Simulated assay, not measured.
Amino acid sequence: MANPWAGEVTVVLDGAPHRAKLTLGALAELEAALEVGSLLDLVERFEAGRFSTRDVLALLVAGLRGGGWQGGPADLRSVDIGGGPLEAARVAAELLARAFASPEAR
Rank of each mutant, 00 (worst) to 15 (best):
L39F: 09
F51K: 00
F46T: 09
D55Y: 07
V36H: 10
L40E: 10
R54A: 14
D41Q: 15
L40Y: 08
G49R: 10
V61Y: 11
E44T: 13
E35C: 06
L60T: 03
F46I: 06
G68R: 03
R65K: 14
L42D: 02
L60K: 06
L59D: 04
G63Y: 01
L39P: 08
R45T: 07
E47R: 15
G66R: 01
G37A: 11
F51L: 02
D41H: 14
R50A: 13
V43R: 12
R65H: 04
V36R: 14
L57K: 13
D55L: 09
R50E: 15
F51E: 13
G68M: 04
E35P: 00
R50L: 13
R45C: 06
R45A: 14
R45K: 15
G68H: 01
R65S: 05
L64V: 09
L34H: 08
S38H: 13
R54S: 08
L57Q: 14
G63D: 02
L39A: 06
T53P: 00
G49Q: 11
R65V: 07
G67D: 00
G63I: 02
R65Y: 05
R54K: 12
L57E: 15
A48K: 15
V43L: 11
R50C: 04
G37I: 05
L64D: 04
A62R: 02
F46H: 10
V61L: 08
V56K: 01
S52T: 15
G63A: 02
L40N: 12
A48D: 14
L59Y: 05
R50P: 01
V56G: 02
L59E: 05
V36P: 11
V61M: 11
D41S: 14
G37Y: 08
A48T: 13
G63F: 02
R50S: 13
L59P: 04
R45H: 11
R54P: 00
L60M: 09
L40I: 13
V61P: 11
L59R: 03
L64I: 07
G49D: 10
E44L: 14
L57F: 02
G37L: 08
R45Q: 12
V43D: 12
V56N: 04
F46G: 09
G67N: 01
S38W: 07
R65G: 07
E44K: 12
S52G: 01
L42A: 05
R65P: 07
